[in-house]
Design a protein around this nucleic acid. Sequence first.
DNA 1: CGCGACGTTGATTTGCCTCAACGATTGTGG
DNA 2: CCACAATCGTTGAGGCAAATCAACGTCGCG
Lengths: 193, 193
Amino acid sequence: MPIDQLIAYFAQYIPLRDIEKNELRNRLVEKRIKRRQFILQENDVCKYYTFVVSGCFKMYGVDYNGAEHNIQFAAENEWIADISSFHSGKASRLYIEAIEPSVVLQIDPANLVYLYHNHPKFDRIFRVIAENKFIELQNRVLQNISSTADERYQSFLEQYPKLASRLPNTQIASYIGITPEFLSKICRINAKK
Amino acid sequence: MPIDQLIAYFAQYIPLRDIEKNELRNRLVEKRIKRRQFILQENDVCKYYTFVVSGCFKMYGVDYNGAEHNIQFAAENEWIADISSFHSGKASRLYIEAIEPSVVLQIDPANLVYLYHNHPKFDRIFRVIAENKFIELQNRVLQNISSTADERYQSFLEQYPKLASRLPNTQIASYIGITPEFLSKICRINAKK
DNA sequence: CGCGACGTTGATTTGCCTCAACGATTGTGG
DNA sequence: CCACAATCGTTGAGGCAAATCAACGTCGCG
């Protein structure tokens, strides 16, 4: 059951008691998402905090030339949302799109706030999740401002080997901030060595 | 009093009750930091979560050429720490250095965990703080991978006008990921218009 | 089958870096 | 209080990393 997977995931941080588990069950919605389906589009409000049970998503922004720039991937046991839009209720400038057929669990702001207020443990858990994601992003920013394209690519392969093998290089190029053509050239040069 | 400033800061998120205020008082340490003094150096463990009462800090990494790359600034009413090192107890790869003479309030991991366990409100507050910083970083990553140096500079000026006026351009260049020379050229071109 | 996503390669251009040199300013110790 | 060092900003010449543009082959999928 998808919900059990989520409970096991939470248990990595803090085990839940039965009351909390039941509250969760009642407030989450399970959905199947097809490949290329959007769970968030620009100018919409991000209505759900989404937990990926299986499959994979990308979140990206689109610039004035129409080019996509991947901000984040989310595969099994990861959360994805435009938190800014989710909490403020304002329109998002981002897209979240399924890269693979996926199963997700979703919670809306009202239900999440209910959980926070009635079971402070969730504040703790999501604090730690947010801190970990913050650390991850901080490392990425440092990479971006201090490394070459090649170094960023190698570092992506090391940090996310599983993800790298499921994604087309085009998507990785967009994530590390280079063109697909240049990534292809990097790969050729590295293969020769 | 510095501690009152922190309490007022917390009240933006959730007002504290007297018990919580007193607990805070007992667990924070006030320090004066001179310009150019470090509160974290590479290979040390980050022992404190630091709240800036007045003054300004930069956090940066140093690459194999010895060049500094600014990850974050922190001025009045902002928190700064290498959270990864702080929570894991492992050595940091970063530096935190005072750019101006500063006054700070610091808390160590044991005392912070005490607060989390005895007053869940702090879990909530620091969850929201972490989420906000996460959003900020996410925007920065998007900027980095989708904009030119000039756009990143303009965007820095808009987002942090006060900070921009107290920092030398060298520090801003390091933050947006370009050389000081090139930033100087950007400024000249923009001045002509 | 035919279209669209993906990867590849080459020619050319450009954004940004490197290095070097030079004033202006700040600050600091004698 | 002055002298000298360190920091900061500026400018120019030249080089390199990465983008752009265009063309082409492959593959999977509807």
